[in-house]
């Protein structure tokens, strides 16, 4: 049958309200409301605090956005991989020095990303596959750390982990820089375009001679590199690594991607949205923390926000189709 997906001009115009505008609007609105309720909230200092709180989650969420944009939903292995890479980094810095440690960590991260990407392009279900990989990574973290704290003594690492150039923590600089670089890469790099097109419609991508499998591998390597950066920052900040680091963080990363409104069918959205999503959640968490919300309430609210955001964005998209 013929397929016509013409859309009325008004809908086409509405389409042009990008999703990140909604997220920014939500951030501004929440900021204003919270500022009225809690005076200590709307200070410049607290804004910095929120960006700092969003940074570590955000760095991984940016990597996760590559996975989502490439049409692979999301990964459940980021936290376990983070622990594994943290242990590797700490061990390598201890034995080889900072630079070599960094290189080794990135190398392992890239290999881990490739292994996952290849498996997923064969199996086809990223969530289940990464669930299996997460137990492997956690096991490797425990194996390599020998179940003890791996300490490092590196001034470069400490400077990297605790420095505050211009009063802003290094983590936040990295977060902002990474968001911008990732955004540019998705927009301008050939691989970025490959990722977007493969996610937008894998069949068309294959029919256009593009390597969809490569796109999946690239996406997971990007995520792994994001995870590696997080692991390096965390180890550097506290000069140590443990096998049980980051336990339970996976859903924070996913929540940021979902709240940022990146379309889960792939091919749309940008890493900036994941970054904004991380900031929105950090803002909300900060507000709830300062107002003494219990942990259960905080978790319920974040879960509700995720449901609301995914449902709303999904309906918004469906109406426009």
């Amino acid at each position: 049958m013929s397929i016509m997906t013409d859309v009325s001009p008004s809908a086409a115009r509405r389409r042009s309200v990008p999703r990140f505008v909604w997220v920014i609007a939500a951030i501004v609105a929440l900021y204003l409301v919270a500022g009225v309720i809690t005076p200590s909230f709307a200070t410049f200092d607290n804004m910095l605090v929120i960006v700092r709180a969003a940074s570590i989650t955000g760095i991984v969420a940016i990597g996760m956005s590559y996975v989502t944009i490439s049409g692979n939903l999301f990964a459940l292995s980021a936290a376990a991989l983070g622990a594994f890479l943290a242990v590797i980094f700490a061990l390598a810095v201890g034995h080889l020095g900072f630079a070599a440690g960094l290189a080794a960590t990135l190398l392992v991260a890239i290999l881990a990303g490739m292994a996952q990407g290849l498996s997923i392009s064969v199996v086809g279900n990223p969530i289940i596959t990464t669930l299996a990989f997460s137990t492997v990574f956690r096991g490797l973290a425990a194996l390599f750390s020998g179940n003890s704290i791996v300490r490092i003594d590196s001034d470069i690492a400490l400077a990297l982990g605790t420095g505050r150039p211009l009063g802003v923590p290094t983590q936040s600089w990295a977060f902002i820089a990474l968001a911008l670089v990732s955004w540019a890469l998705i927009r301008r790099a050939r691989l970025g375009r490959l990722l977007v097109l493969s996610g937008a419609n894998p069949q068309t991508a294959i029919a256009s001679g593009l390597n969809v499998r490569l796109a999946t591998v690239v996406a997971f390597v990007a995520l792994s590199v994001g995870v590696a950066i997080m692991a390096v920052f965390t180890v550097s900040q506290f000069s140590q690594a443990k096998a049980d680091l980051f336990a339970g963080y996976d859903f924070d990363y996913i929540a940021a991607v979902l709240v940022g409104g990146i379309a889960l069918r792939g091919g749309q959205g940008s890493p900036l949205q994941a970054a904004l999503g991380a900031i929105l959640i950090a803002l909300l968490q900060n507000f709830m923390l300062l107002n003494g919300f219990t942990a259960g309430l905080r978790m319920t609210v974040v879960g509700g926000l995720v449901l609301l955001a995914t449902g709303a964005f999904h309906l918004l998209q469906r109406r426009l189709r």
Binding site: R193, L197, A200, N201, Q203, T204, A207, R265, G267
Partner: peptide, 15 residues
């Protein structure tokens, strides 16, 4: 089957 493997519906025309 244009919809299935002819176009990237959610991407711009130049892309």
């Amino acid at each position: 089957d244009r919809k299935r493997d002819g176009i990237f519906a959610v991407r711009s025309v130049p892309e």
